Computed example of a mutant assay.
Amino acid sequence: MIRPATSADASAICSIYNHYIENTVITFEENPLTEDEMAERIRAYSEKYAYIVYEEDGEVIGYAYGSSWRTRRAYRFSTETTVYLKDGAAGKGIGSLLYSELIERLKGKGFHSLIGCITLPNEKSVRLHEKMGFKKVAHFHEAGWKFDQWLDVGFWELLV
């Protein structure tokens, strides 16, 4: 089931996201989030963008949301998109279901340019974005530093 995220989902979402913070370079965040910090993000992103979860048998398996791309007014129709799945849940089509729903919700709110930022290499995320119709529009070399290594990032865009 896909539904809007609520502050009651903060613990489950923290569990999913903090795994990526602590163990991967997929996110450039370096400090795990608290449930209160996550609940605030859910509240803030839900108001203007969309924040959804995929729930299976009462457990949140994944989530997706839109957030600010840039702050100047001219960017008001652009949003950065994000999707995360519980470790081990990839390859079951959940990411595609979440992204499809997120795209529709953001489109319904008047967004025109959806932008995905991917730490490279990350073939699974690249495949997901391209399956959803995103096209690669930028590649920045050594743009981030985490776990004692320089990391590239790429940007994929979908116009809706």
Rank of each mutant, 00 (worst) to 15 (best):
residue 116 G to A: 15
residue 142 E to T: 07
residue 115 I to F: 01
residue 101 E to F: 01
residue 46 S to L: 04
residue 122 N to Y: 01
residue 75 Y to R: 12
residue 99 Y to K: 08
residue 3 R to F: 14
residue 135 K to H: 13
residue 87 D to H: 09
residue 51 Y to D: 06
residue 4 P to H: 09
residue 4 P to T: 11
residue 115 I to M: 08
residue 153 V to F: 10
residue 21 I to F: 07
residue 142 E to N: 14
residue 16 I to R: 03
residue 40 E to A: 08
residue 71 T to K: 10
residue 30 E to V: 10
residue 156 W to D: 00
residue 41 R to T: 03
residue 79 T to N: 04
residue 21 I to N: 08
residue 126 V to L: 02
residue 94 I to A: 01
residue 20 Y to K: 13
residue 72 R to G: 09
residue 22 E to N: 13
residue 48 K to Q: 15
residue 127 R to F: 11
residue 17 Y to T: 04
residue 73 R to H: 03
residue 122 N to G: 06
residue 148 D to N: 13
residue 91 G to N: 11
residue 72 R to M: 14
residue 42 I to G: 00
residue 143 A to R: 05
residue 23 N to E: 06
residue 150 W to L: 07
residue 47 E to S: 14
residue 5 A to F: 05
residue 66 G to C: 09
residue 1 M to I: 12
residue 49 Y to H: 13
residue 111 F to T: 15
residue 54 Y to A: 15
residue 139 H to S: 09
residue 49 Y to N: 09
residue 106 L to C: 13
residue 79 T to K: 02
residue 63 Y to A: 11
residue 24 T to F: 05
residue 74 A to R: 01
residue 109 K to D: 07
residue 70 R to N: 13
residue 8 A to V: 14
residue 113 S to Y: 14
residue 89 A to D: 03
residue 55 E to Y: 08
residue 18 N to F: 03
residue 14 C to V: 07
residue 49 Y to R: 08
residue 12 A to P: 02
residue 37 E to Y: 05
residue 53 V to D: 04
residue 30 E to I: 07
residue 43 R to T: 10
residue 29 E to A: 14
residue 139 H to W: 10
residue 70 R to T: 13
residue 59 E to A: 14
residue 22 E to P: 06
residue 139 H to P: 03
residue 43 R to H: 10
residue 124 K to M: 06
residue 12 A to F: 03
residue 24 T to H: 04
residue 73 R to T: 09
residue 136 K to P: 11
residue 69 W to Y: 15
residue 72 R to H: 10
residue 134 F to C: 11
residue 42 I to F: 01
residue 47 E to R: 12
residue 150 W to S: 07
residue 5 A to Q: 03
residue 140 F to L: 15
residue 22 E to G: 07
residue 103 I to H: 00
residue 126 V to W: 01
residue 39 A to F: 02
residue 97 L to G: 06
residue 59 E to V: 15
residue 149 Q to C: 11
residue 117 C to M: 10
residue 104 E to C: 09
residue 140 F to G: 05
residue 46 S to I: 01
residue 56 E to D: 15
residue 38 M to G: 00
residue 37 E to V: 12
residue 109 K to V: 13
residue 72 R to C: 13
residue 59 E to G: 05
residue 73 R to I: 05
residue 134 F to W: 09
residue 122 N to C: 07
residue 7 S to W: 04
residue 25 V to T: 15
residue 135 K to W: 08
residue 136 K to W: 12
residue 31 N to G: 00
residue 82 T to Y: 01
residue 1 M to C: 13
residue 66 G to I: 04
residue 33 L to T: 00
residue 72 R to T: 13
residue 120 L to R: 00
residue 32 P to L: 06
residue 130 E to W: 07
residue 56 E to S: 15
residue 56 E to Q: 15
residue 115 I to S: 03
residue 48 K to T: 14
residue 63 Y to V: 09
residue 158 L to G: 08
residue 150 W to V: 07
residue 149 Q to F: 04
residue 57 D to H: 12
residue 90 A to M: 09
